[in-house]
Design a protein around this nucleic acid. Structure first.
Length: 259
DNA sequence: TTGGTTGTTATTAT
DNA sequence: AATAATAACAACCA
């Protein structure tokens, strides 16, 4: 799941559940989600700390405290939940953080492709996020055009390159390009001004709706709502959708609508 | 059993 | 130097 909109949702969960709260207990149920920190040290460093305002960059969530910060990445299957401590713990709840005031933050992740890091200070956070481009949300047109100018290679691989701009994943990239009527395998250099503007405008609209929904919505009017159908058709023209591999990922597009 | 999956990273190739 | 392709990571589902 987690692309920019999902992580933005987790930021909200974090803020509502843990903002201003103190850590009363930490339970690591599966240390496989800890990156560069042992369960012992995580518990020791976090115990008694008070969470401050969480923030997001791309697909990363940073949750500072009056001590160290936690830096979260959700991989393909991670999520952050706010629970009551006596709610049943599920099989993939890997980390439980009990807060004062009677709530519990839970990191649930089936595949454990990413996880949680501990950053001692702001500089350590910056080091973790150092290779990311600017956040895709709120990127204005002129900055967007500047980022893409001189870029070789395909538009989809550019959009999903986190070091170029941060936050877009496979579903968002396909959705944006479908909306902009641009084929995913087009080279960036081959796109004219109008096409680039359309991609930027589609990015803005898709992100706005997706952030509101907390995910890329699988609505029937969206490509994302069709791509997993047995015989998917374009929501715009009704013709069968094409599917293949671009930038190493499954890619779905409409041969008729996207040029 | 095999293939596929919304994530990143390392390695190799172009 | 940049980009692209591939496998690996891990777990599950069809």
């Amino acid at each position: 799941m987690p692309e920019l909109p999902d992580v933005e949702g987790f930021r909200g969960v974090m803020q509502r559940c843990a903002g201003g709260r103190r850590v009363d207990g930490v339970e690591v149920r599966d240390a496989g989600v800890l990156r560069g920190v042992t369960a012992r040290r995580l518990c020791r460093e976090l115990q008694g700390r008070r969470f401050a305002q969480p923030w997001r960059h791309g697909k990363w969530l940073v949750t500072p405290s009056d001590g160290p910060a936690l830096v979260w990445h959700f991989g393909m299957t991670g999520e952050l939940l706010c629970a009551a401590p006596d709610d049943a713990v599920e099989a993939h709840d890997r980390l439980l953080i009990t807060l004062d005031g009677g709530r519990q933050l839970r990191y649930r992740d089936r595949r454990k492709l990413q996880g949680v890091r501990l950053a001692a200070d702001e500089a350590a956070v910056e080091r973790i996020l150092a290779d990311l481009g600017p956040d895709a949300r709120g990127l204005d047109l002129s900055r967007f055009l500047r980022l893409l100018s001189g870029r070789r290679g395909g538009i989809k691989s550019a959009l999903t390159d986190q070091s170029l701009l941060a936050g877009l994943g496979n579903l968002l990239a396909d959705e944006i390009l479908w909306r902009a009527r641009v084929r995913p395998d087009r080279s960036v250099r081959g796109l004219d001004d109008d096409e680039l503007r359309r991609v930027h405008a589609a990015m803005g609209r898709v992100l706005r709706s997706s952030v509101r929904a907390g995910r890329v919505p699988a609505r029937r009017g969206w490509l994302t709502g069709r791509r997993d159908d047995a015989e998917p058709v374009c929501p715009r023209c009704g013709r069968p959708l094409a599917s293949g591999r671009t930038a190493g990922r499954r890619t779905v597009w409409c041969e008729h609508c996207q040029r």
